[in-house]
Every structure is written in C-alpha cells, then in structure tokens.
Design a protein around this nucleic acid. Structure first.
Lengths: 211, 211
DNA sequence: CAGGTAACGCACTATTTAGTTACTTTCGAT
DNA sequence: ATCGAAAGTAACTAAATAGTGCGTTACCTG
C-alpha cells in the first residue's frame, strides 16, 4: 500500500493547479470579473496559497498572461517554418494561428483583458519582448526568401503582415457572439470555420504574391 | 433675469447625461469593472435616477450598446456608397471603418465587453439585426456591381469581406497596447496610423480585384 | 393657484470581495 | 526519531458595491 501513497503536500502541483484555474477564470470573466475565491475552489487549493505563491490577484494575472504568450510563441517556433518553401511556410503559419486560437480560446480572452487594462501587466517583461522579436524575424525571413524566389512581391512590412494574419482569425473568433447574432449565422458551425480559414488563406496569399 | 433661468428638472437631459457617462465608464472598464456610483457622479445625476430610468446596471448597458451599434450603422448608411463606382465605394468603406474606430474608441471596447458576455445583452434586439442586414446588403451590392463591371472577381462572400474589413482595423486598435509593447513601436503615432490604413486598403483591394 | 405627478436626493442594507491573522500538519534532512 | 521549515487551513476584516425605502422639491395642468 505504501506505493499508492499520494503526495499530500506538493508546492509545484498546487502552483500548477492554481495557474490552470486562474487561466480559466480570468479568460471567462476578465481580470475584473474573476474571483479569487472561485480560483481557489477550482484549483482545490486554499485561497491563502494564492497569496502565498503569487502575492496578489494582479500578480497572478501577470504570470498567467506571460505563460499564455510564451506558450503560443513556443508552439510557433516548433513549426520549423524556416525549412519550408515561402508560400507553404506562410500558409502553414496562417493555418496554425487560426487553429491555435480555436483550440486555446482562453488566449484571445486574456489578451483582450490585458488590452482593456492598457497592457500594464506585461509592461516590464523583457522576456515577452524577446520572443516577439524572434517571431517577427521569422516572418521577415519567409518574406525575404519569397521575394528572392520571385513568388512574393517586395516591400511587405512583416509587422503589418503579422498583425493582419492575427486579426482576420482573432476578430472572427472573439466577436463570434455578436457576429453570429447580427449576421444570422452560426460562426462556430464546422463549415463556417472551414470557410473562414479558406477565406483567410486566400486573403493573405493575394496580399503577398507577386502578380 | 427670467430668461436666464435654467431648467432644474429635465428628464431627457438627465437621461442623456447618464447614457453618455455610462458609455464612457463601460468602455473604460467593461461591464464588470464599471461602477454605478461612478456613472452617477460623472453624469452629475443621483444614482437613484439610473435605477429609475434604466432599471439596472445591465439594462443600462443594453441601451448603451444598442445606441452604439445604431450610431455606426447610421453613419455607414450616410456614406452613400451606392452612388460611387465599386472600387471607390469599397475603399471609402475601409477608410470610413478605420476612421470611425479611431474616432470612437468606445465602440470597440463596448463590443469587446459584450462578447466577453456572449452577446447576451443584444440577443433580443430585432432592430440591430435589421440594420446589420441592410449593411450586408449594401456591401453585397458593391461586390455585384464590381463583378458586372469586371473590376472585381466573382464569388466573394459579402459577410466574410465585412468581417475582414472590420478585423484588420479593429484588431490593430483594440490590441494596440500589447502590440506597441511587443513590437516595440508606437501604434498610435500618426505615421503608424497612416501606414496601417494604407496597408489595409491594399489588403482589401488585392482581395477583391480581378487579376 | 392648487395639487398631483414626475424628478430628484439622502442615507441605508445586504452581500460580496481582496487580502490577512494566527494557527495546524506534513515532510525531508540530519 | 526529531525538529525546523514549508505547506496548508479556517475564520476573520475592512472596504466596496448594486440596489432601495422613503421623503422632498420643482413643474405642469386644469
């Protein structure tokens, strides 16, 4: 029976449960709407532990946000786009971005919440700035290769392109509730999702391709 | 002196002040973060009046939101796009949308807040559905005219196009705080704003034009 | 000009919420 | 085995906060 014994006290596990619960709660209700008591309950941890490990609600939010950004940028890096032909690399990036937003809906909501608060929680994270720089560099690389091969037109700003790739997926998903109602169609129906991805791929390709 | 007399009691004026203050407060902090006491104070009205005229915080939010949607759709209608050549009509719409978001930042924030709450406050507004339908029809009309004239390619979905036009402006502005920090440039600098509009016009035109 | 009604204000309540105080229990290094 | 530090708990506080009960005041109508 000794081997089935479960660790009763485990700081790392508790921290991880708190972070996971906090991510859900912050994503669901925003920083202002989230309740610390609720996070503690969902994490099956005592509220005191949240203050013990993270100091305050805002500090907890900071850690959740930073983790969320690191996660997406890490996933992007592992796409290995440098080793694909430019057109394929770009369409893979568009598809990845769309799928990531779709499969990790809390990411979008956390970013929205952070922007409602004017980005004050990430303002001192050099780490996030660093991973963003790498990301822009990657897109710039794809563009340059495409230009050299004559498949992309020259002079495309990688930051503008990044923003657009994110925008056309992000906006559709974050505003799907008002969108579904106002445009009288289910934005989350699987055909609708497929159609949106196809439209977005088309948009980006037409934007970059040399005529 | 009789003519300088100011109305001390004026239901309409008080209602209007409450709505204006509520719009600001809801936009600034979201539905959850907004404080009824603060709205009352900014409106120079007694909190009791908010409950007298609007019933509850959520009902007040509903009215604010509906007004905001009506405002943008009304402004769009007055662009008179039906009487412009297709290409001009479309680029005027892209430019208008961008400028409207820029000049009425509360609109974006209200829509974000409503989507955080899964659009439950507009769910029964047939009026909003009606104005949205008219809007889609207008875009569809432009596309059809362009197709007939041979300047636009056929088969473009007007709803997808609408979403994209909104997305590429909306995302840039709503996420300008995290964006400015992560990409290390001031998203609100006037050259940056001009560059974004130019990029967006380019994106939309390449998307619709026949080759 | 009387008096009813709508506009307005004050002060209160019941509840919720972030954060804390003071304690007990577990665990691993010696 | 034991003991000190880290992990964990329960019950509290002080401040906010949405919403109200009830009384007062201005304005319009007849």
């Amino acid at each position: 029976m000794a081997q089935t014994r479960v660790r009763v006290r485990d700081a790392d596990a508790t921290k991880a449960r708190i972070l996971e619960a906090a991510k859900e709660e912050f994503a669901r209700l925003g920083l202002g709407g989230a309740r610390v008591d609720e996070i503690a309950e969902r994490a099956k941890a005592n509220k005191r532990m949240i203050y013990h490990y993270f100091g305050s609600k805002e500090e907890l939010f900071k850690v959740v946000l930073e983790e969320a950004y690191i996660d997406i940028r890490t996933a992007e890096q592992s796409l290995d786009l440098e080793h694909l032909p430019p057109r394929e690399a770009l369409s893979k990036l568009v598809t990845f971005t769309w799928r990531y937003y779709l499969e990790n809906p809390e990411f979008i909501r956390l970013v929205n919440s952070e922007n409602l608060h004017k980005a004050r929680h990430i303002k001192d994270s050099a780490r996030l700035q660093e991973v963003s720089r790498r990301f822009t560099g990657m897109v710039n690389d794809i563009l340059k290769r495409g230009e050299d091969e004559g498949v992309f037109r020259p002079g495309i700003d990688p930051v503008q392109l990044n923003i657009t790739i994110a925008a056309i997926g992000y906006y559709y998903l974050t505003n799907r509730f008002t969108g579904s109602f106002l445009f009288e169609q289910d934005f989350m129906a699987s055909e609708a999702l497929d159609a949106r991805l196809a439209f977005n791929l088309d948009t980006v390709m037409r934007l970059v391709e040399a005529r």
